[in-house]
Computed example of a mutant assay.
Amino acid sequence: MTDPLGAHSDLHSEQGALRGEHPGRARNPVIKVRDLAWLEFEKPDLSATSGFACAFGFTATVHTPDELHLRGTDAGTPCVIVRKGSRSRFVGAAFAAAESADVLRLAEATGRAARPLPESIGGMGVDLIDPTGGRVRVVSDTHQLPESDAQQPHVLNVGHRIDRTNATQRPLREPARIQRLGHVVLQSTRYLETLNWYLENLGLIVSDFLYYSGQRERGPVMSFIRCDLGRTPSDHHTLALALGPANRYVHSAYQVNDLDAIAAGGEYLLDLGYQRSWGIGRHVQGSQIFDYWRDPDGFLVEHFSDGDMFDCTLEPGWAPMTASGLAQWGPPATKDFLGIGTPREFARELRTMASSLREDNEFDLQRLRGLLKVASS
């Protein structure tokens, strides 16, 4: 186990897989989804949710006392659907199938029923439960919102190339207009089982694996996973999965135009008193320029731009997981981003870890040691 197979040094990770490691894709998946359609949440205060959403860059297409639909400027479905609930919680993700036959095929293979979706969304879907207990909806033939006005890219003078003369650059301090939903990151106590479930049922493929330093022989603990669109490039990750002491939502990411949109939009959010969690910086895996924020309910959301796009020919990269390795440049990862921003949060995380260690899952004592090394790196 010393010779990397298919290594892609300097491309998007340190090296390729070693012999016998996880291939990062299923041999014969049930279907291949084409994109992440939307995310669903429940929250008790839709007015506060709407206020932050508009400042973050969404546009509301449905806003009733019981339901809120938030869209980007790209054509398609809403990015986020929020329904009124007694407490704040992430309900699940919806993935777009290539066609209705795929929804029916997946329903038959999993023993679930395909049903019409609410009229506000249209189309049909099948609801599955992944190994974390989370709901995963796969949909087709939904109503498509038309493209709306997007922020226009600035004309840039880059190096010695001069494209702007006798004109100034004045990015407005305004919301960074969301273009589309990019990805969602989830944590699982049964990481490998959950990873295989998504690869086998939805046909997703891994772009990058991360492993704990000194524990590579035990396998990966995080994967960045993309849609398999054949030779058509897709986002470096549509879904990211990480091993951890709880089954939970970590964050979701929304594409905006460029760095100016991220920076000026961030100043707008700060002016309104919202909390930046971490940023601005550029990631390693995925290469996105990022900026993370906390919404009024404490959910972590990300503005991003300039992400990697891979086609089906690229094999997974492998790299050790470190906190310092999360960004090529930018400030160090904050305690808030790592989920231990306050003494109360730190104590709660310790209790979560202790509880997980008493259960039958993949998060054992050795994995805990690896995670603690990451947090201190």
Rank of each mutant, 00 (worst) to 15 (best):
D3M: 14
S13D: 15
G16H: 06
G20V: 00
R25V: 00
I31Y: 09
L36K: 04
A37V: 03
E42T: 11
P44Q: 05
S50I: 03
G51D: 12
G57S: 09
H63W: 00
L68M: 07
R71M: 09
C79Y: 03
V80D: 06
V82L: 01
R83V: 02
A93K: 04
A96N: 13
D102W: 05
D102A: 13
T110G: 09
A113E: 15
A113N: 13
G125Q: 09
I129L: 15
D130Q: 04
G133S: 08
V138P: 09
S148K: 08
V155A: 06
V155I: 11
D163N: 14
R164A: 12
R177N: 07
R177M: 06
Q179L: 13
L186M: 13
N201V: 02
G203R: 03
G203P: 09
L204R: 07
V206L: 04
F209L: 05
Y212R: 11
S213P: 05
Q215M: 14
Q215I: 02
R226G: 02
R226V: 03
D228N: 15
G230E: 05
H236A: 10
G244Q: 11
P245F: 01
V250W: 05
Y254E: 04
N257G: 08
D258A: 07
G265K: 05
E267Y: 12
D271N: 14
L272V: 01
L272W: 03
G273F: 12
Q275S: 13
Q275P: 00
W278K: 02
W278N: 08
D295K: 10
G307A: 11
F310L: 15
D311W: 01
T313V: 05
P316G: 01
G317S: 06
W318R: 14
W318K: 04
T334Q: 05
D336I: 12
F337L: 15
R344M: 04
E345G: 10
N361R: 06
L365S: 15
Q366M: 08
K373S: 13
V374K: 00
A375R: 15
S376V: 08
